[in-house]
Simulated assay, not measured.
Amino acid sequence: DMICVVLGEVDIATAFSELPFDHLLYTGSTAVGKKVMAAAAPNLTPVTLELGGKSPVIVLDDANLESVVNRVMMGKTLNAGQTCIAPDYVLIQRQYHDQFIHLAKEWMAKHYPNIENNPDYSRIINGEQFKRVKGYLDALTGDEIHALTVVEPNIETRLMPPVIVSEPAPDSDLMQNEIFAPILPLMHYETLDDAIYFVNSRPRPLALYVFSDNYSSIENVRNNTVSGGLCINEVIMHVAQHDLPFGGVGDSGTGAYHGRAGFERLSHMKPIFVQTKLNGLNFLLPPYGGLFKKAMALFLK
């Protein structure tokens, strides 16, 4: 009586979005989110869009790199990177590049041994998505790709082992589209202001992750970036805090839910006013003479 589940492809989703609901909540890609919003517009149906995008990780030079790798790799391998708030790419200073890759390889060996037959490691959801992700790698040179395991991608089993990509071109498909897979670009920056500029020059992300113990640096990131959510020395876990509103901004979505924010987002707060039998409104009716002026003077005190 409360829930109806309808399975279908694009035609079903299109027809669904065009119905005059009280509210639509959509989670998925930015491109499809725009279509949902357009379909809802003729009915003036309010929408909440949770869209994802490219959620960056900023690693400051005072951060414990082993701890950083532990959390970033956890987030990037969770469901094989197929979550809307997976860390999409890492902004790191050049001197820590090789150490990050070395620690990531050690992390994979510890947490996902024998990845080819490991039931803890997810597969890419379908063949079409696998080809999309594999296309990102095929467009790169061998020098850019750092495999974190000895296993190759397998289209038959849809196994995509995690890889790190060194400084892909900022205008490449890999750096323009949400990856939604276990491919992790490492981008270099010189100063924190450079990293902030890089983030701000791109569509606003659903999540932003910063690793540091320096209060002023963290405040710099917090005050000078815009994102749906912000995690400090952590990734993804903000979505599990149900008292925190969860949602995007700009290309990463509109509206927030979870906890009280979700209740208010999906409700209409109906204001109700009841007039008493004895009231002074008649003093406010024309003609506006001396009695009206006295009444207004009294009300304005």
Rank of each mutant, 00 (worst) to 15 (best):
N64K: 11
N64M: 11
N64C: 12
L65D: 04
E66S: 14
E66L: 10
S67A: 14
S67N: 14
V68C: 06
V68W: 03
V69M: 03
V69K: 03
V69W: 02
V69F: 07
V69E: 07
V69L: 09
N70Q: 15
N70E: 15
N70L: 14
R71F: 10
R71C: 05
V72A: 07
V72Q: 05
M73L: 14
M73W: 11
G75F: 06
K76E: 10
K76N: 12
T77M: 09
L78I: 12
L78P: 03
L78Y: 12
N79V: 11
A80W: 01
A80F: 03
A80E: 04
A80R: 04
G81W: 06
G81Q: 10
G81C: 15
G81R: 05
G81M: 13
Q82T: 09
Q82R: 07
Q82C: 14
T83H: 03
T83Y: 02
T83D: 08
T83Q: 05
T83E: 04
C84F: 07
I85V: 15
I85E: 02
I85F: 02
I85T: 09
A86Y: 05
A86W: 04
P87E: 08
D88C: 09
D88S: 12
D88Y: 09
Y89C: 04
Y89Q: 01
V90Q: 02
L91I: 06
L91H: 02
I92D: 00
I92F: 00
Q93F: 00
R94S: 04
R94G: 00
R94P: 02
Q95M: 05
Y96W: 10
D98M: 00
D98I: 00
D98W: 00
Q99G: 02
F100P: 00
I101T: 03
I101F: 01
I101M: 01
I101D: 03
H102D: 13
H102I: 10
H102G: 04
L103R: 01
L103Y: 09
L103N: 07
L103M: 09
L103P: 04
A104N: 04
E106V: 11
E106N: 12
E106Y: 09
W107N: 08
W107F: 14
W107Q: 07
W107Y: 15
M108E: 05
M108A: 06
M108H: 07
A109M: 06
A109E: 12
A109I: 03
A109W: 02
K110S: 15
K110C: 13
K110L: 15
H111I: 11
H111S: 12
Y112A: 07
Y112H: 10
P113F: 08
P113I: 09
N114C: 11
I115K: 09
I115D: 06
E116D: 14
E116V: 13
E116R: 10
E116T: 13
N117R: 12
N117E: 15
N117L: 13
D120W: 07
D120E: 15
D120M: 15
D120N: 15
